[in-house]
C-alpha cells in the first residue's frame, strides 16, 4: 500500500536549512494498523504530511497504491487525497457552521456526489460511529469524543484506502481516547490501512505495529505487546 524509499525533506528557515527527514525507508501493507511515534521534532508530522500528499519531499520515492507520488499539481494532489486518504486531526477540524451530517458529507461534495445521495451516505456513516441521533447537531453542541467520531465518519465516507490520524486522541481524556481507538480498530478490521501519529505509549500499543522516529530517522520498527489487557485494566 505504502512504500517509502530513502525520503529526505528539509525546510528552508532563512539562511539555515533544517533537515527534518534524513532518509526514511518503510513500507506498509494493505490492512495494517501502524502508529508512528516520536518526540516533537522527530519529524513525525512532516512524515504524515508527505504521506497525506499535503507536502512534497526533496529526495527518495513515495509510492501509494503502486503509484509514484511526486511533484503533483495542487489539483492532482487534491484529487488523490480525496480518493485515497481520509484524515483525522487532533483538533477535529469540523466546519463550525455545518451540522454533523453536512460535515461528514463534505468529501463527497468534492467528489461531485449529489446532495441527496451524499447526505444519505453521511447518515449511514454517522450510524456506524453511533451518532445518528446527532446528525442535525452543530459541532459546538457536541463533546470532544463525539466530534472526533464525526471526524472519523467524515474520513471514511469517500471510501479511502488509508486513514491518516494525527494525534487523534490528543485532545481527549483516556476513556474517550479508547472509544476512538476502538472505532479506528474496527475500521482497520474492515481492511482499511490506518496510520496513527501519536506520542502516547498506550495508544501505540493498541496498534499492530509501531514505527519510532528520532531526529529524522527510524529508530525502531516493532510489533508491540498486545495491550488489550492494559486497556481493560485502565
Amino acid at each position: 500500500m505504502i512504500q517509502l524509499k530513502n525520503i529526505h525533506k528539509s525546510y528552508q528557515m532563512g539562511n539555515n536549512s533544517l533537515h527534518v527527514l534524513k532518509g526514511i525507508d518503510f513500507s506498509v501493507e494493505p490492512g495494517e494498523m501502524v502508529s508512528i511515534m516520536g518526540s516533537s521534532g522527530s519529524g513525525k508530522s512532516t512524515l504524515l504530511n508527505i504521506l497525506g500528499i499535503l507536502d512534497n519531499y526533496d529526495q527518495g520515492e513515495y509510492m501509494l497504491d503502486n503509484k509514484i507520488i511526486k511533484t503533483l499539481s495542487e489539483t492532482k494532489a487534491a484529487l488523490l487525497r480525496n480518493e485515497y486518504i481520509g484524515f483525522v486531526f487532533q483538533s477535529f477540524n469540523l466546519i463550525s457552521f455545518k451540522n454533523a451530517m453536512e460535515n461528514v458529507a463534505l468529501p463527497l461534495y468534492y467528489k461531485g456526489v449529489s446532495r441527496k445521495k451524499r447526505n444519505k451516505t453521511a447518515l449511514e456513516y454517522l450510524e456506524k460511529v453511533g451518532l445518528l441521533d446527532w446528525a442535525e447537531h452543530m459541532p459546538n453542541e457536541m463533546s470532544g469524543g463525539q466530534k472526533q467520531r464525526v471526524a472519523i465518519a467524515r474520513s471514511l465516507i469517500a471510501n479511502p484506502k488509508i486513514i491518516l490520524a494525527d494525534e487523534p486522541t490528543g485532545a481527549l481524556d483516556s476513556t474517550t481516547s479508547y472509544e476512538v481507538m476502538d472505532i479506528l480498530k474496527s475500521i482497520n478490521e474492515e481492511g482499511i490501512t490506518v496510520l496513527i501519529v501519536t506520542h502516547e505509549e498506550d495508544i501505540s500499543r493498541m496498534t499492530k505495529r509501531v514505527i519510532k522516529l528520532k531526529d529524522g530517522l527510524i529508530e525502531a520498527d516493532y510489533i508491540p505487546e498486545a495491550m488489550e489487557e492494559f486497556a481493560t485494566v485502565n
Binding site: 484524515f87 477540524n93 468534492y110 467524515r154
Partner: peptide, 13 residues
C-alpha cells in the same frame, strides 16, 4: 483553517 480542512478533504484550488 476551514479552507485547509477542505483542501485536505479534496478541495481543488
Amino acid at each position: 483553517r476551514e479552507i485547509g480542512v477542505r483542501k485536505a478533504l479534496g478541495a481543488t484550488p
